[in-house]
């Protein structure tokens, strides 16, 4: 399942990650497109759309403070006894 998060803090165009469809189907994947997406992540958890019972793969892009937001989110996941990891992607030029 792929969740895409982007905050209103950022107005610049964003590139969606190109991910393997089967891998996305088999895992809990969150593409964090911009900084400021952290509360959107918490909302998804509180709604039950994302669970801490399974690993959470955070996808970080190359711009818009995506990796920064991934680090804050992953830290929250670990503090709350979940687990996950950050994977970086770079779309083809």
């Amino acid at each position: 399942m792929l969740h895409i998060l982007a905050s209103s803090l950022h107005q610049e165009p964003i590139q969606l990650p190109q991910l393997d469809e089967q891998w996305v189907k088999d895992h809990q994947v969150v593409a964090v497109m911009t900084g400021g997406s952290e509360q959107l992540f918490l909302q998804k958890v509180h709604e039950g759309a994302i669970t801490l019972d399974e690993p959470i793969y955070l996808i970080a892009g190359q711009q818009s403070n995506s990796l920064a937001a991934c680090c804050e989110i992953l830290s929250w996941i670990n503090i709350n006894n979940g687990h996950g990891e950050i994977r970086s992607y770079r779309n083809a030029e």
């Binding site: 610049e12 711009q63 818009s64 403070n65 937001a69 804050e72 830290s75 990891e85 950050i86």
Partner: peptide
């Protein structure tokens, strides 16, 4: 570069630092 905060520096890091950020960072900043 555009689409990033204005001061931008590249750091050479070892595997330990890379693993820390990818699995168990202490928040963002």
């Amino acid at each position: 570069e555009p689409n990033l905060c204005r001061t931008q520096v590249w750091l050479e890091i070892d595997d330990k630092v890379s693993h820390y950020f990818q699995t168990n960072p202490i928040a963002n900043h």
